[in-house]
């Protein structure tokens, strides 16, 4: 079943891709091939491959229980929030929170997760910024 959904999704993606390829503007100078042709080829391969997957699905993968899916969704949301807030609050603060969260969700106790968060953030800051001179996001406090 998963593979059939995947196949349908692939066909939709291929359709969308081909449609987008067909609306690429053409420039007044162009080579004989043009900017549309290569995407057309790719779109057709994508469509054929998806159709085959839809036609002959593999055995069902083992999907995790809903709670685990939720877990992954939240983790992805935390990472996106991390990316968004990085410039506002600086590297060390954001990394502490994100690393502590991930460590907690991977099974560490809250207190050790918090310590791990601080250790990871400060460790990366010292090694990559102070020693190796990499530029990291600066927050309102300068780190």
């Amino acid at each position: 079943m998963s593979d059939r959904i995947f196949g349908v999704f692939g066909l939709l993606l291929a359709g969308f891709y081909l449609w987008q390829a067909s609306v690429i503007e053409l420039s007044f100078i162009s080579d004989p091939f043009g900017p549309r042709a290569f995407p057309y080829i790719i779109g057709v391969v994508l469509a054929i491959a998806s159709a085959v997957v839809l036609w002959k699905p593999d055995t069902e993968p083992e999907w995790p229980a809903f709670s685990r899916l939720f877990e992954i969704g939240i983790a992805a949301a935390v990472m996106i929030a991390y990316a968004m807030f990085l410039k506002d609050y600086g590297f060390v603060a954001c990394t502490t929170v994100a690393a502590a969260y991930l460590s907690w969700r991977l099974g560490a106790r809250p207190v050790s997760a918090a310590i791990a968060g601080v250790a990871i953030a400060v460790g990366i800051y010292v090694i990559f910024h102070l020693v190796l001179g990499l530029s990291l996001a600066r927050g309102p406090w300068g780190f």
Partner: peptide
């Protein structure tokens, strides 16, 4: 549980 958060954070540092 300590390694993977570090891996994720180092990935972010590199791309940033």
């Amino acid at each position: 549980r300590y390694l993977m958060p570090a891996v994720a954070m180092i990935s972010f540092v590199g791309i940033y």
